[in-house]
Nucleic acid binder design. Sequence first.
DNA 1: TTTATGTGCAATTATTTGGTTGCGCAATAG
DNA 2: CTATTGCGCAACCAAATAATTGCACATAAA
Lengths: 108, 108
Amino acid sequence: MEVRRDVFQAIADPTRRAIILLLTVGALTPNAIAEHFDSSRQAVSKHLQILTECEILKQEQQGREIHYHLNAAKMQDIEKWLEQFKQLLAKRFDQLDVVLEQLKTKRK
Amino acid sequence: MEVRRDVFQAIADPTRRAIILLLTVGALTPNAIAEHFDSSRQAVSKHLQILTECEILKQEQQGREIHYHLNAAKMQDIEKWLEQFKQLLAKRFDQLDVVLEQLKTKRK
DNA sequence: TTTATGTGCAATTATTTGGTTGCGCAATAG
DNA sequence: CTATTGCGCAACCAAATAATTGCACATAAA
Protein backbone atom coordinates (compact mmCIF):
# COMPACT_ATOMS: atom_id res chain seq x y z
CA MET A 1 0.00 0.00 0.00
CA GLU A 2 2.75 2.40 -0.77
CA VAL A 3 3.92 3.49 -4.16
CA ARG A 4 1.71 2.73 -7.14
CA ARG A 5 -1.05 5.18 -7.54
CA ASP A 6 -2.69 5.51 -10.87
CA VAL A 7 -6.17 5.05 -12.24
CA PHE A 8 -5.35 1.70 -13.82
CA GLN A 9 -4.14 0.25 -10.57
CA ALA A 10 -7.15 1.77 -8.85
CA ILE A 11 -9.72 0.05 -11.03
CA ALA A 12 -7.86 -3.27 -10.91
CA ASP A 13 -9.70 -4.12 -7.72
CA PRO A 14 -13.32 -5.24 -8.11
CA THR A 15 -14.41 -3.63 -4.85
CA ARG A 16 -13.03 -0.31 -5.99
CA ARG A 17 -14.80 -0.62 -9.32
CA ALA A 18 -18.02 -1.28 -7.44
CA ILE A 19 -17.42 1.75 -5.22
CA ILE A 20 -16.95 3.91 -8.30
CA LEU A 21 -20.20 2.71 -9.82
CA LEU A 22 -21.96 3.14 -6.49
CA LEU A 23 -20.86 6.74 -6.21
CA THR A 24 -22.20 7.66 -9.62
CA VAL A 25 -25.53 8.03 -7.83
CA GLY A 26 -24.15 10.58 -5.43
CA ALA A 27 -21.79 11.24 -2.54
CA LEU A 28 -21.77 8.83 0.38
CA THR A 29 -20.02 8.45 3.71
CA PRO A 30 -17.57 5.59 4.37
CA ASN A 31 -20.08 3.83 6.59
CA ALA A 32 -22.82 4.10 4.00
CA ILE A 33 -20.48 2.72 1.37
CA ALA A 34 -19.27 -0.10 3.59
CA GLU A 35 -22.84 -1.26 4.10
CA HIS A 36 -22.91 -2.29 0.47
CA PHE A 37 -20.00 -4.67 0.90
CA ASP A 38 -18.98 -7.62 2.98
CA SER A 39 -15.68 -6.13 4.00
CA SER A 40 -15.19 -4.05 7.10
CA ARG A 41 -15.44 -0.30 7.25
CA GLN A 42 -11.67 -0.05 7.58
CA ALA A 43 -11.10 -2.14 4.51
CA VAL A 44 -13.48 0.04 2.54
CA SER A 45 -11.82 3.10 4.01
CA LYS A 46 -8.51 1.97 2.58
CA HIS A 47 -10.03 1.62 -0.83
CA LEU A 48 -11.47 5.10 -0.46
CA GLN A 49 -8.04 6.37 0.46
CA ILE A 50 -6.52 4.79 -2.63
CA LEU A 51 -9.25 6.14 -4.86
CA THR A 52 -8.82 9.57 -3.31
CA GLU A 53 -5.04 9.52 -3.73
CA CYS A 54 -5.36 8.92 -7.43
CA GLU A 55 -8.02 11.61 -7.59
CA ILE A 56 -10.94 9.46 -8.64
CA LEU A 57 -12.69 10.52 -5.44
CA LYS A 58 -12.81 13.75 -3.51
CA GLN A 59 -13.63 14.21 0.13
CA GLU A 60 -15.97 16.77 1.54
CA GLN A 61 -16.09 17.16 5.28
CA GLN A 62 -19.48 17.90 6.80
CA GLY A 63 -19.34 17.97 10.55
CA ARG A 64 -18.01 14.62 11.60
CA GLU A 65 -19.09 13.02 8.39
CA ILE A 66 -16.98 12.81 5.28
CA HIS A 67 -18.74 12.62 1.98
CA TYR A 68 -16.89 10.95 -0.82
CA HIS A 69 -17.93 11.94 -4.27
CA LEU A 70 -16.71 11.14 -7.75
CA ASN A 71 -14.29 13.16 -9.77
CA ALA A 72 -15.63 11.76 -13.00
CA ALA A 73 -13.10 13.69 -15.06
CA LYS A 74 -10.32 11.46 -13.80
CA MET A 75 -11.88 8.48 -15.50
CA GLN A 76 -10.84 10.02 -18.76
CA ASP A 77 -7.32 8.78 -18.09
CA ILE A 78 -8.61 5.33 -18.89
CA GLU A 79 -10.59 6.50 -21.85
CA LYS A 80 -7.55 8.29 -23.17
CA TRP A 81 -5.43 5.17 -23.07
CA LEU A 82 -8.18 3.15 -24.68
CA GLU A 83 -8.48 5.76 -27.36
CA GLN A 84 -4.76 5.62 -28.01
CA PHE A 85 -5.02 1.87 -28.31
CA LYS A 86 -7.86 2.11 -30.77
CA GLN A 87 -6.03 4.70 -32.84
CA LEU A 88 -2.96 2.51 -33.09
CA LEU A 89 -5.11 -0.41 -34.04
CA ALA A 90 -6.86 1.63 -36.68
CA LYS A 91 -3.49 2.66 -38.07
CA ARG A 92 -2.55 -0.98 -38.32
CA PHE A 93 -5.62 -1.72 -40.34
CA ASP A 94 -4.82 1.25 -42.51
CA GLN A 95 -1.50 -0.41 -43.25
CA LEU A 96 -3.34 -3.60 -44.00
CA ASP A 97 -5.52 -1.63 -46.36
CA VAL A 98 -2.39 -0.35 -48.07
CA VAL A 99 -1.10 -3.89 -48.46
CA LEU A 100 -4.40 -5.09 -49.85
CA GLU A 101 -4.44 -2.14 -52.21
CA GLN A 102 -0.97 -3.02 -53.43
CA LEU A 103 -1.99 -6.59 -54.05
CA LYS A 104 -4.98 -5.41 -56.02
CA THR A 105 -2.80 -3.12 -58.10
CA LYS A 106 -0.23 -5.82 -58.79
CA ARG A 107 -2.89 -8.26 -59.86
CA LYS A 108 -4.01 -6.28 -62.85
CA MET B 1 0.94 -14.81 -9.92
CA GLU B 2 -1.80 -17.31 -9.39
CA VAL B 3 -5.49 -16.68 -9.28
CA ARG B 4 -6.72 -13.30 -10.37
CA ARG B 5 -7.10 -13.05 -14.07
CA ASP B 6 -9.20 -10.34 -15.57
CA VAL B 7 -8.63 -7.56 -18.04
CA PHE B 8 -8.59 -4.86 -15.37
CA GLN B 9 -5.88 -6.57 -13.41
CA ALA B 10 -4.02 -7.18 -16.67
CA ILE B 11 -3.85 -3.53 -17.66
CA ALA B 12 -2.93 -2.42 -14.15
CA ASP B 13 0.73 -3.03 -14.94
CA PRO B 14 2.45 -0.38 -17.09
CA THR B 15 4.66 -2.93 -18.85
CA ARG B 16 1.63 -4.93 -19.87
CA ARG B 17 -0.08 -1.80 -21.16
CA ALA B 18 3.02 -1.07 -23.21
CA ILE B 19 3.03 -4.61 -24.58
CA ILE B 20 -0.57 -4.21 -25.64
CA LEU B 21 0.17 -0.99 -27.47
CA LEU B 22 3.28 -2.53 -29.02
CA LEU B 23 1.32 -5.43 -30.40
CA THR B 24 -1.21 -3.22 -32.13
CA VAL B 25 1.36 -3.02 -34.89
CA GLY B 26 1.41 -6.76 -35.34
CA ALA B 27 2.37 -10.10 -33.83
CA LEU B 28 5.77 -10.47 -32.21
CA THR B 29 7.82 -13.17 -30.51
CA PRO B 30 8.69 -12.96 -26.79
CA ASN B 31 12.29 -12.10 -27.60
CA ALA B 32 11.28 -9.35 -29.98
CA ILE B 33 8.94 -7.94 -27.36
CA ALA B 34 11.51 -8.18 -24.59
CA GLU B 35 13.95 -6.11 -26.64
CA HIS B 36 11.66 -3.15 -26.14
CA PHE B 37 11.93 -3.33 -22.38
CA ASP B 38 14.54 -3.33 -19.67
CA SER B 39 13.26 -6.45 -18.01
CA SER B 40 14.42 -9.94 -18.89
CA ARG B 41 12.80 -12.21 -21.44
CA GLN B 42 11.41 -14.33 -18.62
CA ALA B 43 9.84 -11.35 -16.94
CA VAL B 44 8.22 -10.31 -20.19
CA SER B 45 7.19 -13.90 -20.74
CA LYS B 46 5.30 -13.82 -17.48
CA HIS B 47 3.44 -10.75 -18.60
CA LEU B 48 2.64 -12.47 -21.87
CA GLN B 49 1.33 -15.43 -19.94
CA ILE B 50 -0.94 -13.22 -17.87
CA LEU B 51 -2.18 -11.37 -20.94
CA THR B 52 -2.79 -14.68 -22.68
CA GLU B 53 -4.65 -16.16 -19.73
CA CYS B 54 -7.10 -13.31 -19.72
CA GLU B 55 -7.39 -13.61 -23.49
CA ILE B 56 -5.98 -10.25 -24.44
CA LEU B 57 -3.29 -12.09 -26.37
CA LYS B 58 -3.30 -15.23 -28.42
CA GLN B 59 -0.35 -17.45 -29.25
CA GLU B 60 0.47 -18.82 -32.64
CA GLN B 61 3.23 -21.37 -32.86
CA GLN B 62 5.45 -21.22 -35.92
CA GLY B 63 8.24 -23.71 -35.73
CA ARG B 64 10.08 -22.95 -32.53
CA GLU B 65 8.85 -19.39 -32.50
CA ILE B 66 5.68 -18.28 -30.83
CA HIS B 67 3.95 -15.25 -32.18
CA TYR B 68 1.82 -13.31 -29.78
CA HIS B 69 -0.89 -11.25 -31.31
CA LEU B 70 -3.70 -9.13 -29.97
CA ASN B 71 -7.23 -10.25 -29.42
CA ALA B 72 -8.51 -6.71 -29.69
CA ALA B 73 -12.08 -7.79 -28.98
CA LYS B 74 -11.17 -8.52 -25.39
CA MET B 75 -10.43 -4.89 -24.79
CA GLN B 76 -14.12 -4.26 -25.06
CA ASP B 77 -14.47 -5.60 -21.54
CA ILE B 78 -12.89 -2.38 -20.38
CA GLU B 79 -14.94 -0.27 -22.72
CA LYS B 80 -18.08 -1.99 -21.54
CA TRP B 81 -17.39 -1.15 -17.94
CA LEU B 82 -16.52 2.41 -18.82
CA GLU B 83 -19.73 2.65 -20.79
CA GLN B 84 -21.73 1.37 -17.83
CA PHE B 85 -20.05 3.97 -15.68
CA LYS B 86 -20.91 6.74 -18.10
CA GLN B 87 -24.49 5.58 -18.37
CA LEU B 88 -24.94 5.62 -14.62
CA LEU B 89 -23.38 9.03 -14.48
CA ALA B 90 -25.68 10.30 -17.18
CA LYS B 91 -28.65 8.97 -15.26
CA ARG B 92 -27.53 10.91 -12.23
CA PHE B 93 -27.40 14.11 -14.17
CA ASP B 94 -30.84 13.39 -15.52
CA GLN B 95 -32.03 13.32 -11.93
CA LEU B 96 -30.22 16.57 -11.30
CA ASP B 97 -32.03 18.02 -14.29
CA VAL B 98 -35.32 16.93 -12.78
CA VAL B 99 -34.44 18.67 -9.53
CA LEU B 100 -33.43 21.85 -11.30
CA GLU B 101 -36.62 21.75 -13.30
CA GLN B 102 -38.64 21.41 -10.11
CA LEU B 103 -36.88 24.39 -8.57
CA LYS B 104 -37.60 26.44 -11.66
CA THR B 105 -41.26 25.47 -11.53
CA LYS B 106 -41.57 26.33 -7.85
CA ARG B 107 -39.98 29.70 -8.34
CA LYS B 108 -42.70 31.08 -10.52
C1' DT C 1 -20.83 16.41 30.91
C1' DT C 2 -21.16 11.84 29.54
C1' DT C 3 -22.01 8.73 25.91
C1' DA C 4 -22.32 7.33 21.32
C1' DT C 5 -21.04 7.84 16.57
C1' DG C 6 -18.12 8.64 12.35
C1' DT C 7 -13.79 8.45 10.93
C1' DG C 8 -8.69 8.12 10.20
C1' DC C 9 -4.37 5.86 11.36
C1' DA C 10 -0.87 2.38 12.85
C1' DA C 11 0.59 -2.29 13.45
C1' DT C 12 0.21 -6.97 11.99
C1' DT C 13 -0.49 -10.74 8.74
C1' DA C 14 -1.44 -13.56 4.65
C1' DT C 15 -1.43 -13.35 -0.08
C1' DT C 16 -0.19 -11.65 -4.54
C1' DT C 17 2.95 -9.46 -7.47
C1' DG C 18 6.88 -8.76 -10.44
C1' DG C 19 11.24 -10.06 -11.01
C1' DT C 20 15.61 -13.15 -11.24
C1' DT C 21 18.12 -17.38 -12.04
C1' DG C 22 18.68 -21.81 -13.76
C1' DC C 23 16.91 -25.59 -16.07
C1' DG C 24 15.03 -28.59 -19.85
C1' DC C 25 13.34 -29.28 -24.40
C1' DA C 26 12.20 -28.86 -29.08
C1' DA C 27 13.34 -26.77 -33.56
C1' DT C 28 16.71 -24.95 -36.52
C1' DA C 29 21.48 -24.03 -38.24
C1' DG C 30 26.31 -25.63 -39.08
C1' DC D 1 25.22 -35.27 -35.50
C1' DT D 2 26.31 -31.20 -32.66
C1' DA D 3 25.73 -26.47 -31.44
C1' DT D 4 22.71 -22.80 -31.08
C1' DT D 5 18.47 -20.52 -30.54
C1' DG D 6 13.68 -19.64 -28.80
C1' DC D 7 10.76 -20.77 -25.23
C1' DG D 8 8.33 -22.31 -21.17
C1' DC D 9 8.54 -23.70 -16.46
C1' DA D 10 9.81 -24.10 -11.55
C1' DA D 11 12.02 -22.28 -7.50
C1' DC D 12 12.98 -18.47 -5.05
C1' DC D 13 12.84 -13.54 -3.30
C1' DA D 14 11.66 -8.73 -2.21
C1' DA D 15 8.11 -5.66 -2.35
C1' DA D 16 3.36 -4.42 -2.59
C1' DT D 17 -1.45 -5.35 -1.55
C1' DA D 18 -5.68 -6.24 0.94
C1' DA D 19 -7.68 -7.10 5.03
C1' DT D 20 -8.04 -7.28 10.37
C1' DT D 21 -7.67 -5.45 14.79
C1' DG D 22 -7.15 -2.00 18.00
C1' DC D 23 -6.68 2.83 18.89
C1' DA D 24 -7.31 7.82 19.14
C1' DC D 25 -9.97 11.82 18.34
C1' DA D 26 -13.14 14.73 17.01
C1' DT D 27 -18.34 15.90 16.62
C1' DA D 28 -22.93 15.26 17.88
C1' DA D 29 -26.58 13.39 20.88
C1' DA D 30 -28.36 12.22 25.86
